[in-house]
Design a binder for these strands. Structure first.
Lengths: 230, 230, 230, 230
DNA sequence: AATGAATGAGCCTTCATTCAT
DNA sequence: GATGAATGAAGGCTCATTCAT
């Protein structure tokens, strides 16, 4: 190894411009959306020259796309991937996935950006929307359909499965999407980890009951008669 | 002919400039949100001179506020007011309200503007958000809490009531808010009146089952007496 | 006639912004070409706000196109149109046309812009070039071919006619195109009207001799034998 | 092997950076002119880092000047130098020089750069114009004056000599300068070597006839003794 | 009540150039 | 010599707004 005395730069603080830009852009885009955000604000926020977004990313849209791509793979996503891959029994996996998504959706820090960005995509899609959905939303959507399908003993393409999937995802996403409304009609609500866990539990319980209602017979034990899978 | 001296105003000019502007603005704001909409586009769409938004409304934000205020009272809202005031038994009123909201949320025509505008407020609140929520969202929210509270035999302020209310509203609003995602992951879905009725039925059924699950007394075995309060 | 006392605004000085912009743009574009000219400079030169080129013309290229279109019809062009339509015998019409073109090409004032603009088009064509050529250059070109064809007793499409036409036009255009070179290698040359007349006479005489050389026999008197028209 | 101590430079590195830059710059400048060309494009085209133009040449203008200086002496110029120095009789030398210039002016390849660059200088002079003219144009100009003076039996400073010189040079340069116009009004024209030779012949014949006409003695009847001076 | 013209600030982008290594 | 990153100025354009009529 090289001499540890000489030229020992701080090893964990490279914090290069590209990263600073991605960070600032993530924050600003998550706050204001693609259109309303200005590269000036982003650069000011990152403390770098305005011409650097052109140098590092080409233009505003590519910076945005990169922010999206980057935030998909952010560390916080591990929890979702893990929940998607869970081998637990359906109901348990179902609870896990809801909790993971809700955590992801409610955190305002780095890993929470992605869903906040998506909220803006919902209201005003950009050219990047399609890939965002495909890379971020669809895996969750498909896993939910799988789980719900198995619980209802229906194929993932069945109308009831899709509607139920929407019902579940809607409840989770709501806390990110409608957070301004929620915090106005229920100002006391504070989204700390305990609360989030509690809400996740509520959603899971509420939805599992809804699913059982939709399943013609009390599921699992007697998957017998009508409307069954294939 | 009317008296030529009194400068009798045209009694009911069916489309004066102010109205044309409000109409056009409603459409454009509902499409693009406050920020992304331009007064030029609105005026072009209304076929009036660009200086008139300033003359009639002061500035863009006041035009927007006026659009919101105006659209709250729009005729199409009758269906929601009626559903809110329904005297039917709770479960039936609950179904009615869900259907009314969903209809309102999914139609892109004139009376649907208001909710579309709110979708944009969610992603990017304007100074007008507070009053929008208070005038539009809270009545629905409070009525749902009332209904759910009565079904769960809990006060409207109880955590479980609030969480359940969010669960219900989230499912409805989802079809407006996430419509781009929905139409990507489920392209075949077409929101015609029949479909909307079917979705409303699903949400009501799904949610009522969830509510029964949440009710303090284990209702699984006896889903009968659901109306205990305190 | 209206009262000469009241409201007598200066009749010949409307000088509206559009015109001021066209004037300034003509000057700046003629000086620097399309690319190198900046709309900021044009607006500063016209003494108007920079946003007005967008308001009146849409964008820089349309302003440029308008300048070209405008300068084609400028008053100074009458002399060329007159020369093109001259009914004099070919040699005389030939002299007239050369003189008219040379005058047009050498004046730096308003009507001279057009050819100066074309010089820039030559070095660096813009999307407007095609129409510029068709509207400005081709009529002159075709008339020269006609005249030369009749003097050589050949069709206007004959190679010799085309080459000779180029030879003539080249000599005229040269004084505009290569003016910087000319004024460096011959600083004493001053392009006042007398000089221009003298140069025109030279070009005509020089070229008519060239044409006679190309015509197999001394033209006009004995248009007899070989290589004749049709 | 060479001595490992002396840091022997590579004797003739066929393509060092400086040369690569000069080459690329020549091409790009010839295409777009000084202003419109960007150093980025030049460096990309040369495959070198963008900072190297500053390192090697100081700035864009000095690179340009160097390109001009360099291209004057380019190998392809031999043909012109040879034509200038020709010891043939005036008419023959005249023909040679016209052909040499036309060749140089019409070819788009490496040795043709210099004249293409000059075309841009004509439309938009840079600070380098003066020296460009002096080094490139004036030798040709002076030689033409010499030849024409000797044919007209007048001093090179005589007005008629200068005007005639312009007439000749104009015809040659025209095919480079107005090439876009030419190719629009005469699309079939293709400037291959045979065509170029044919055009050169035309110009020479056309111009020699013009010169005879200009000569003080009425030469129409006796085109014989053309060599009177003073 | 309405208009066409005008304004100034701000947008994203790109340029030639220079810095630190 | 050579590099990648950084810089500040300027480019064309668009915005909400206001002026004079």
């Amino acid at each position: 190894m090289a001499s540890p005395l000489v030229k020992s730069k701080p090893p964990v603080l490279p914090e290069d411009t590209r990263t600073k830009l991605l960070d600032a852009a993530g924050q600003v885009f998550a706050e204001s959306g693609f259109q309303a955000a200005t590269v000036r604000e982003i650069c000011a926020c990152a403390g770098v020259n305005i011409a650097l977004v052109n140098y590092h990313f080409g233009d505003k849209l590519e910076l945005y796309t990169e922010v999206l791509r980057h935030s998909v793979g952010a560390s916080g996503n591990g929890i979702i991937k893990k929940a998607i891959g869970s081998k637990a029994p359906p109901e348990e996996a179902f609870r896990e996935l809801i909790h993971a998504m809700l955590l992801r959706v409610c955190r305002a820090d780095r890993p929470g950006w992605h869903f906040r960005l998506m909220m803006h995509e919902f209201a005003q899609p950009t050219p990047a929307m399609a890939s965002v959905i495909d890379e971020t939303m669809r895996p969750v959507y498909d896993r939910f359909r799988e789980l719900i399908g198995s619980m209802l003993d229906l194929t993932p393409d069945h109308d009831q499965v899709r509607l139920s999937t929407h019902s579940v995802i809607a409840q989770v996403v709501h806390y990110a999407h409608a957070r301004h409304v929620v915090s106005r009609v229920w100002p006391e609500l504070e989204l700390n980890p305990e609360r989030i866990a509690q809400i996740a539990t509520h959603i899971a319980r509420f939805s599992l009951a809804g699913l059982r209602q939709i399943a013609p017979t009390p599921t699992r034990s007697a998957p017998a008669q009508l409307n069954r899978k294939k």
